[in-house]
């Protein structure tokens, strides 16, 4: 009785409570937009540096109808997916192998670390020569940029497995493949996912960045073109779509993670 009473009386504040973070986030976005609108209109900010948000909103229709933004978003998303998934499919096994062999691990870890830190995007001329001016170049570059964090975090996660859990496995006479799949890998999974999240961020940046640099394909190229035409509201509208695609990406990843490890 008391329980239902409490629930009933608090139904509307609990809605605010449940969506509190989202509502607060949206509200601050709206406030920021209004603030910029005001600052631009008053003339504090030059409208050729930051266009008024209302112009950006108006630019959406033009960008969608004239610039084939859906097709371009699709092209960008496709390059991202291929590069990101390939980085996981290669990075996790490579990390697992390096974890198993202390010699290779010590030999390779610094190189992989260097790969993680290297500004791969700047090596685009080399990749252009190797793969031509095609989506292949973009995918390969993004893949390499996304690879290192997954390898490093896979090694870190596997070696971070608690000793006592390994001892449980040993006391049960588990084979080394059972040990890997039933203890080491699930124990490392949260850390591996941290690596994947990092990797996917690198992949997103590289794909859009290289598209922009070599003026090819999806949203990056569109941003390049619109900027060159000094169509700032359109540029910002296109950037908004980049954000949209990334959000879609990370929601996807979150779903996979939730499915793989329901325990939180």
């Amino acid at each position: 009785m008391a329980d239902t009473l409490v629930r009933k009386s608090s139904s509307s504040p609990s809605l605010l409570f449940r969506y509190g973070p989202e509502i607060t986030g949206l509200a601050s976005l709206v406030v920021a937009a209004l603030l910029f609108e005001l600052l631009v209109r008053v003339g504090v900010i030059n409208r050729y540096v930051i266009p008024p948000p209302s112009d950006v909103i108006l630019a959406f229709e033009r960008v969608v109808t004239e610039e084939d933004i859906l097709g371009r978003s699709g092209a960008t998303a496709f390059e991202m997916i291929v590069a990101a998934v390939a980085a996981v499919l290669v990075g996790v096994p490579v990390g697992a192998l390096l974890h198993r062999s202390p010699l290779w691990r010590r030999a390779m870890e610094d190189w992989v670390g260097a790969l993680a830190a290297a500004p791969i995007v700047l090596a685009f001329p080399l990749f252009l020569v190797l793969f031509g001016r095609s989506p292949k170049t973009i995918i390969v570059m993004a893949f390499f940029h996304g690879l290192a964090p997954i390898i490093l975090k896979t090694i870190e996660g596997l070696s971070g497995t608690r000793k006592v859990l390994i001892n449980v496995g040993r006391s049960l006479n588990m084979t080394s493949s059972q040990m890997f799949w039933k203890i080491l890998f699930p124990s490392a999974l949260p850390v591996i996912f941290t690596g994947i999240r990092l990797s996917w961020t690198f992949v997103l940046i590289t794909v859009v960045g290289v598209e922009y640099l070599i003026n090819l394909g999806g949203l990056g190229q569109l941003i390049n073109e619109l900027a060159e035409r000094y169509d700032l509201p359109g540029t910002y509208a296109a950037i908004f779509f980049v954000i949209l695609v990334s959000v879609f990406f990370f929601i996807l990843l979150e779903r996979v993670e939730l499915w793989l490890r329901p325990a939180r």
Binding site: R162, V164, L165, N167, V168, R170, S171, L172, N173, I183, P186, S187, L189, R261, A263
Partner: peptide, 20 residues
Amino acid sequence: APHPAVGMVFQEESTFPWRN
């Protein structure tokens, strides 16, 4: 090496956090 007839309960917390 571990003997198959032996079962062990450890001093440290040893449940698998990813399994219910």
